[in-house]
Simulated scan of single mutants.
Amino acid sequence: MESEEAEGTIVKMINNCDDRMSELKAFDDTKGGVKALVDGGVTKIPTMFYHPLDKFPNSSNTEHSLIPVIDLEGVAKDPITRQQVISRIREASETWGFFQVVNHGIPGSVLEEMKEGIKRFFEQDVEVKKEVYSRDNTKPFFYNSNFDLYTSSALNWRDSFGCQIVPLIGKPQDLPEVCSCAGHYYPPCPEPELTMGTTKHSDGAFLTVLLQDHIGGLQILHNDKWIDVHPVPETLVVNIGDLLQLLTNDRFKSVQHRVLANRNDSRVSIASFFGYNSLAPLTKLVSPIKELLSEDNPPKFKETTVAEYAAYFKAKGLGNNPLQDFRI
């Protein structure tokens, strides 16, 4: 009963604020995230979560089947299969910027436990989660809602946690026992037509590998249409990030994508971002690969560092396209 009364108070605190910054701070100070709003019985979402209508239409029901699904069976043993898979990945990276992989070698039981771990963390009592609530992403583990809370034009209907796995900051025991990976939690939304689970954006790293549950809602922008990436059991979604588009001088595409909010079910996803601390040191210069350049294909992006791009991406927040600001 005390927990329910506290959650109800959270909703009242936010709704009683008379300006946007106070509203944001009140929400942040609760350390309960979107999940606490839902648990508190919110029926009308706060206006800070309102998103403008998107100008791009949704696709037909059949277009989602065009998103490449690449079978990795035998890729490590058969040279012919390996070349075929490489060719398909190259084509998907150039055309779609997104593809799915099957027969990747991770047991289905492991994938299911990963998703359950996300749910276990976010569905804990809010007082337990508050202990690791932080906006300091240098910590071994941090949980919050909307990393760009104070800079975005509209908040997303999701809570997130993150931990750096390679190299691990701190010790394995610094991570909560309930989970040991990075993930997002999208609670049911009473007014999904007014907001987004995640607003349209591209990823700022080199590459993202995503595990999504059965709920769905992930969409990619392709040929000015939003196309559903329907969940397929035991399949991983792979997408190109901004830094890989920069390295390949626009050959591989870092595609905008989003997640819809939904009224009926909570959704979880686990994203592994490869780039800021695993594929390159923070001070390493990143520029288009020289072997891809020619008189007919000069450099299209300015040289930058991983640290500089990461900081710029964070400052811009989701919903923007920071890579365009690095074009020559």
Rank of each mutant, 00 (worst) to 15 (best):
M1E: 11
I10C: 12
C17L: 04
D19C: 08
T30W: 15
V34H: 02
V38Q: 06
G41Q: 10
M48G: 07
N58D: 11
I67N: 02
V69E: 02
I70E: 02
L72Q: 11
T81M: 12
Q84L: 14
I86A: 15
I86M: 15
R90I: 14
Q100H: 09
E113Q: 09
K115A: 14
E116R: 11
K130I: 03
R135T: 05
N137A: 11
N146D: 03
D148E: 00
A154E: 10
N156M: 15
Q164N: 14
V166P: 01
L168M: 15
P172N: 04
L175C: 07
V178P: 03
S180R: 14
A205M: 06
A205W: 01
L207V: 13
L207I: 12
L210P: 13
D224I: 09
V232A: 01
T235Q: 00
T235S: 03
V237I: 15
V238R: 05
V238S: 01
Q256H: 15
R263W: 06
R267W: 06
V268A: 05
I270F: 02
Y276F: 13
N277Y: 05
L279E: 03
T283E: 04
L285G: 02
L285I: 14
I289H: 02
L293G: 02
L293T: 07
D296C: 03
N297K: 05
K302G: 04
K302H: 12
L318Q: 12
P322S: 15
